[in-house]
């Protein structure tokens, strides 16, 4: 198989030549038993930065999944405490025990929030869960949408391609922040009168908004790759033997697109985490339940006297987004060594 010329220069395909890092298979009986993705995974394993980032991301993922259990270990909950008992109203509502004025408080390792006396650790843990859940779901939804639309546009072509491309360009033109700002409160307000489902609906509408403005990159990428792939012999031959179009798309084309899609997805996650927290910070994202962005919004007015309150969610976002971004870059380098800086 010769290396084809493909459109995308950044999220490219796998190169065939082995890098010095790849050792030959130990047994000589099997000459080539590695799929392109496994070659890339092997390269990724050599990358120390990527491995550190991956560990961080996995830890955050575990925190998100087991937020409730971890909160149970420390015996903390997100229910507001008793401000009259825990907060010093003469001192601007600062807690009596623990930071910022006192020493470490074993009951509340991260301190408690001013005004509501809610435990910061519990808020942080559930904020991590919110952030991870929204970003992961939005990524899955956006990539599914992008993959399907890109495949259809690229493979079917003609008027279908024209329409899908127009919609893609239309969405790319729209200013994401402005649109999210307009849509988010409308969608969530719609459910505000039903308190029992409000929280779930807010999560859901945020996921839909993020995915709704995040699929275009993948769609364009997939379309471009499909346009060049569909002229290749293996597609022609599968058409000749009478394979159905959906089957060609998902069984023949899609496996060839896995590498660029993985790269696109790995860079989508940190963007969604940042966007979720950003919208919450502006007060139009998650308002029910915990969110790092929401905590940052509340904490910025206490920063002068209680910096720890702000630093906790802020570091959460920065570390997670940074690790995900660096990991995404490393995955891109592993998948296509030519883009290495």
């Amino acid at each position: 198989m010769s290396t084809p010329t493909m459109g995308s220069e950044t999220l490219g395909h796998l190169s065939e030549e082995a890098l010095p890092g790849d050792e030959a298979p130990a047994t000589k009986r099997q000459v080539s038993g590695k799929s392109p993705l496994r070659i890339a995974a092997g390269r990724l394993r050599q990358d120390k930065v990527a491995m550190v980032c991956l560990t961080i991301v996995v830890i955050f993922g575990l925190i998100a999944i087991f937020a409730g259990t971890i909160a149970g270990w420390f015996n903390v909950t997100t229910t507001p405490g008793n401000p009259a008992e825990d907060l010093n109203y003469l001192n601007g509502g600062m807690p009596y025990k623990g930071p910022p004025n006192g020493s470490f408080d074993p009951d509340h390792p991260f301190g408690i929030a001013p005004k509501t006396a809610t435990d910061n650790l519990a808020t942080w843990l559930y904020g991590c869960r919110t952030s991870m859940m929204i970003a992961t779901s939005a990524t899955i939804l956006a990539s599914l949408l992008g993959i399907v639309l890109g495949l259809v546009a690229g493979f079917v072509g003609g008027i279908v391609d024209k329409i899908i491309s127009f919609v893609t360009d239309l969405f790319l033109t729209l200013p994401f922040l402005l649109m999210a700002l307009v849509i988010a409160p409308i969608l969530s307000e719609r459910f505000a009168l039903k308190p029992d489902t409000y929280k779930q609906m807010q999560l859901l509408s945020l996921i839909v908004i993020l995915a709704g403005f995040g699929w275009m990159g993948v769609a364009r990428l997939v379309r471009g790759e499909v346009l060049s792939l569909r002229e290749r012999e293996f597609i022609l031959s599968s058409q000749v033997i009478g394979m159905s179009t959906p089957r060609i798309m998902f069984k023949e084309l899609l496996p060839n697109l896995v590498a660029p899609i993985v790269v696109a997805i790995s860079l989508m996650l940190p963007a969604f985490i940042a966007a979720e927290a950003g919208l919450a910070y502006l007060g139009v994202g998650i308002t029910q339940g915990s969110s790092w962005g929401q905590t940052i919004l509340q904490a910025s007015s206490y920063f002068e006297h209680y910096p720890l309150y702000l630093w906790e969610p802020l570091l959460g976002i920065v570390v997670l987004v940074l690790a995900l971004n660096l990991l995404g870059d490393a995955i891109r380098d592993a998948v296509d060594p030519k883009t290495r800086r």
Binding site: P270, Y281, V318, L322
Partner: peptide, 14 residues
């Protein structure tokens, strides 16, 4: 690369 990975609003807020 490090700087551009930090969300802008956090940078500006700090």
């Amino acid at each position: 690369l490090f700087l551009s990975s930090v969300p802008y609003y956090l940078f500006a807020l700090l």
